[in-house]
């Protein structure tokens, strides 16, 4: 049976990734990309809602109705209660950072959701089956941009390589609970980097971790402060 903590890890990954991507709204390099990033963030937010609602239902069942709802989970938990991987909370960075992160994260989600969609937990399988179809478009979009940036101008190549080098160490945490998925992930990511003329970094010893236990980077607090400010200032507000 799926646990509340497992669902929080899945839901928080999607929620925090959505929040970071949403920072690009009105700031993307071109209008079409602005719309694309907002749409992808919206897909992730939808997935987060479904996963956190499930976590909330499970928690309430365990506490005989005394648990929190999806909004309380998203807006009223403190930093140490979030279970997202650190990759999702790193600062927005430049456009190369955003798209390389999308490549790494969406390629991971694709393998993850494919496995969950075939799993024994029916409710989770339904969410994963739905999300799989959306994530396929995210992977596609990230690949297109990684190729354009990596195999583009000297400047775009330099920035894309810097993003790959900076983010690579954070990808190990994604596979801590499911190490067997990394092989399929590498098989998807490595050829894209090669075609984009980007060097695949060495697997070094620097492998930041802790997100699944609530240990986050210094950037997480600022992200939550912004994400939760409205709900905390006006509890229960609706419009």
């Amino acid at each position: 049976m799926t646990t509340v903590d497992e669902l929080l890890a899945l839901g928080d990954d999607a929620l925090i990734a959505a929040q970071r991507l949403a920072e690009w709204t009105t700031r993307a390099p071109e209008l079409e990309e602005d719309v694309a990033l907002a749409n992808i963030a919206l897909d992730l937010l939808g997935q987060a809602r479904m996963l956190l609602s499930y976590a909330a239902d499970l928690e309430r069942a365990g506490l005989e109705g005394a648990g929190r709802d999806e909004d309380a989970l998203a807006y009223l938990r403190g930093e140490r209660e979030f279970r997202n991987a650190q990759l999702t909370e790193l600062p927005r960075g430049d456009f190369a950072d955003a798209l390389v992160r999308m490549l790494f994260f969406a390629a991971y989600q694709r393998e993850l959701y494919a496995e969950l969609a075939a799993g024994p937990d029916e409710r989770l399988a339904a969410i994963a089956g739905k999300a799989s179809k959306e994530v396929a478009y995210h992977v596609d979009h990230a690949i297109m941009w990684t190729l354009r940036l990596g195999d583009g101008t000297d400047e775009s190549h330099r920035r894309a390589q810097a993003a790959v080098d900076r983010l690579w160490p954070y990808t190990f945490e994604l596979f801590e609970d499911r190490p067997h998925l990394r092989e399929a992930w590498l098989a998807a990511v490595e050829p894209v980097l090669a075609e984009a003329t980007l060097d695949r970094p060495e697997d070094g010893r620097f492998r930041p971790t802790g997100g699944r236990k609530g240990v986050h980077t210094e950037h997480m607090g600022y992200l939550l402060a912004e994400m939760q400010s409205l709900h905390r200032a006006h509890p229960g507000a609706s419009w």
Binding site: E32, E33, V35, A36, N39, I40, L42, D43, E134, Y137, D140, H141, M144
Partner: peptide
């Protein structure tokens, strides 16, 4: 195709 993502999630431009 101008953009894979359009004015709503279900559309491209």
């Amino acid at each position: 195709e101008i953009s894979r993502f359009g004015s709503t999630a279900c559309k491209s431009l």
